[in-house]
């Protein structure tokens, strides 16, 4: 279990998406169980931008093998994954 609250992490990610990606800015609501890729909020390059931000923010390193949909494709999955990395 990580040290940052899930709700705080969720807010951080949603804010980041809204501030950095036009598609996210125009949505009224970003659902935490919705695929970020399928919904068009973010593309594969955008995922990398998000990962870079999270690595810098929490001083963690994510392996290539961990860059897979079950870890990253929804906000819920991302939060669980980050918690498993000790965030």
């Amino acid at each position: 279990m990580g040290s940052v609250q899930s709700a705080t992490l969720t807010d951080l990610i949603i804010t980041f998406l809204r501030e950095n990606f036009i598609a996210a800015r125009s949505l009224k609501e970003i659902k935490t169980d919705e695929s970020l890729l399928d919904s068009g909020i973010i593309d594969s390059t955008g995922i990398l931008e998000l990962i870079m931000f999270l690595e810098d923010k929490f001083n963690i390193t994510i392996e290539d093998e961990e860059l897979m949909p079950e870890n990253l494709d929804t906000i819920q999955n991302l939060v669980s994954f980050l918690s498993s990395k000790g965030v």
Partner: peptide
């Protein structure tokens, strides 16, 4: 610089350098 450092944390990664295209 940020992206190259992100890539340098895992120089063998095939995914990280793709962020340069952004």
């Amino acid at each position: 610089d940020m992206i190259r450092r992100f890539w340098a944390r895992n120089p063998e990664s095939v995914k990280r350098p793709k962020l340069l295209s952004a």
